[in-house]
Amino acid sequence: MRDLDETDMEILSLLAENARRPFSEIGDVVGLSGPAVSDRVERLREAGIIEGFTIEVDRAQLRAGVPVLVRVELPTGSLEPARERVRDTDGVEHVFVTADGGLLFYARLEARNVRQWIETRFEGIETADYTVTLVDDVEWTPSVDGVEFALACAECGNTVDSEGETARIDGELYHFCCPSCLSRFEDRYRRLEERA
């Protein structure tokens, strides 16, 4: 896998601004044809750098409730069940886990009693405390500028650089830092297939 070049980074920046931008328009900016941009985007997707294309819905336009930022402090062992519960709740748009093990999420709540809404969501899950902050305005500006991408070797976890190897095994694309890691991975893969 070769390193990402300036054109790849520019394509990523343009897609981060507007994921629905036509490839021909991106090509005009970066000096490539639409099909060439499409090929690069597909390569970035196969490499796992682009995981998908999403939309950001302005729920205010849908009259879908009051925007709030909720921070929940959880005792050890409660984080995963709480995160799963929040992630699967309608109206919750972003879920974060803080470095100190707290849970933070942005939601639009239709409930008139926020305290009751939160207590209902966490019923059966122990919580230490929570705070709710009313959000006045939200701005989301994704950026890939200044970000370095590094692929990890599927065998040893080291960074894959321009001297690395790429292989498609059973339809899946894998990246390796060196030929010996590729060889070890393929050998282990064959042994596992033989046992199955």
Rank of each mutant, 00 (worst) to 15 (best):
A82F: 06
G34F: 10
S78W: 03
V70P: 08
V57H: 07
S33E: 14
R40W: 05
L79G: 09
L79E: 13
V68E: 04
E46Q: 03
E80M: 13
R45Q: 13
E46R: 06
I55P: 01
P35K: 00
V66F: 07
L74M: 12
E56L: 15
G31F: 06
L79Q: 13
T76R: 13
P35Y: 01
A64V: 07
F53T: 04
G34P: 13
E56M: 15
S78I: 04
D58T: 02
S38K: 01
F53A: 01
A60P: 01
E46Y: 02
A47E: 05
A64C: 03
R71Y: 11
P81Y: 11
A64I: 05
L44I: 10
R63I: 04
G31E: 15
L79R: 09
Q61E: 09
E73Q: 15
P67K: 04
E51V: 07
L62Y: 11
T76Q: 12
V30T: 01
T54H: 15
S78K: 06
A60S: 10
V57Q: 06
I50P: 12
E42V: 05
V68A: 07
V30E: 05
V68D: 03
L62Q: 09
V57K: 12
E51H: 05
I49F: 03
P67R: 03
R63D: 13
P81H: 14
E56N: 14
R40T: 02
T54N: 15
V30W: 04
I49H: 09
P81M: 15
A60M: 08
P67I: 10
G77W: 14
V41C: 09
P67Y: 04
V37E: 12
E51S: 04
A36Q: 00
I55M: 10
P75K: 15
L69P: 02
I50C: 08
V37S: 07
E80A: 14
I49G: 06
P75N: 15
L44Y: 12
F53N: 03
T54A: 14
S33M: 04
T54K: 15
R40H: 08
I49V: 10
A36T: 02
E42I: 06
P81V: 13
G52T: 02
I55Y: 12
V30D: 05
G77A: 15
R71W: 11
R59W: 10
A47T: 01
V37I: 15
G65C: 03
L79V: 12
E80W: 12
L44Q: 13
L62W: 06
A60R: 05
L44W: 11
E51A: 08
L32M: 01
L69S: 04
E42D: 12
V30I: 02
V37H: 04
I50M: 09
R83F: 14
T76D: 12
G77C: 15
L74T: 07
D39K: 00
R83G: 11
I50W: 08
V37K: 02
V37T: 06
V30L: 01
R83C: 13
G48L: 14
I55T: 12
S38Y: 00
V41M: 08
R45I: 10
A60Y: 00
A36C: 00
G52Y: 05
F53C: 00
E56T: 15
R59H: 09
